[in-house]
């Protein structure tokens, strides 16, 4: 149906131009955008634009009462909501940083000449494909403070393991570590592609000049995988800032509110029926992602010019 509408408007335009015949009808019609644009516009753009208005209201889904910036004020007044904002930043930075560093190191290892390389690649990538909720439950069980496999193993070597997800100051970090465990495979694969596309001659030339392995890594690999680094940092940061599945599966934001992030706060406010407040949370989350990611992209692009 959408396609039909697009066609007819193209026809009208064509008739208008027909006498001059200056431009043929393009073989790449713009109406190809239309079906996707309708779905995307209605279910993504429209809600996004609407959120700017509804975040300023007390909203029941049927009635919206304008209350100005009250929702935002409340968001930054309630200590647990502020903690959600701080936790979001910690979680995003921690997961993105670790995925980038570990992903690069693993990629170097897995493109090198080692035994079991194929199997290792498979093992590292597999968790990416597994259900997040399932992974969350498994690690929740393994991180149990007394019975959990991790602490039992630590005890065996004489270490008194902490309450990974029961200790409020550790819960968020524990979940972030599981997130890294699950997601590092994707970063590794992207870095592997970057490393493989570096011409072997560069390594050869550097070796002839007497470069050590360490120098090869820092002076050849790291600068030349930049495009992959940019991709990994940006994707994992955007993902990490807006993600809450794993937190929800493992801690539900607890103990208390110690591992709540904005995305889980939004869900809680939604459940409680505070739709305006939940939507304000969405706008804040968008603002934070924009504030973090846009300068970063700008900085990455600028650096590219320098090189």
């Amino acid at each position: 149906m959408a396609a039909g509408v697009g066609l007819s408007s193209a026809d009208v335009r064509l008739q208008g131009r027909a006498p001059g015949r200056t431009r043929r009808r393009s073989p790449y019609p713009t109406w190809f955008f239309l079906p996707a644009a309708v779905i995307y516009g209605a279910l993504f753009l429209l809600p996004t634009v609407a959120s700017l208005w509804f975040s300023l209201t007390r909203w029941t889904l049927f009635e919206a009462e304008f209350i100005g910036f009250e929702n935002f004020r409340q968001f930054f007044r309630e200590p647990f909501l502020v903690q959600g904002v701080v936790n979001t930043l910690i979680y995003g930075a921690l997961t993105s940083g670790l995925k980038t560093v570990l992903g690069l190191l693993l990629a170097v290892l897995l493109t090198g000449n080692i035994l079991f390389r194929g199997t290792l690649r498979t093992l590292v990538f597999f968790p990416v494909l597994v259900s997040t909720i399932g992974v969350g439950f498994a690690f929740e069980a393994m991180m149990h403070p007394t019975k959990g496999v991790i602490n039992v193993a630590l005890e065996a070597v004489g270490i008194d393991g902490p309450g990974w997800i029961t200790n409020p100051s550790l819960a968020l970090v524990s979940v972030a570590l599981v997130d890294v465990w699950k997601g590092v495979g994707l970063a590794t694969v992207i870095f592997m592609a970057g490393i493989v596309s570096i011409p072997a001659d560069y390594y050869e030339a550097a070796r002839i000049d007497g470069a050590t392995r360490w120098q090869l890594f820092w002076r050849v690999t790291v600068p030349l995988v930049r495009p992959a680094t940019v991709t990994v940092v940006t994707l994992s940061l955007i993902g990490g800032l807006r993600y809450f599945e794993l937190i929800w599966a493992m801690t539900g934001g607890g103990p208390g509110f110690s591992s709540d992030v904005i995305a889980s706060v939004i869900y809680k406010q939604y459940q409680a029926g505070f739709y305006g407040l939940a939507t304000a949370g969405n706008v804040i989350l968008f603002g934070i992602i924009a504030l973090v990611v846009l300068p970063l992209t700008w900085w990455f692009n600028r650096r590219e010019v320098d090189l």
């Binding site: 809600p47 996004t48 959120s51 509804f54 995305a263 939507t279 969405n282 989350l285 968008f286 992602i289």
Partner: peptide, 8 residues
């Protein structure tokens, strides 16, 4: 980049 606005 933009997180979907859930309630809207």
């Amino acid at each position: 980049m933009i997180p979907p606005a859930v309630v809207p």
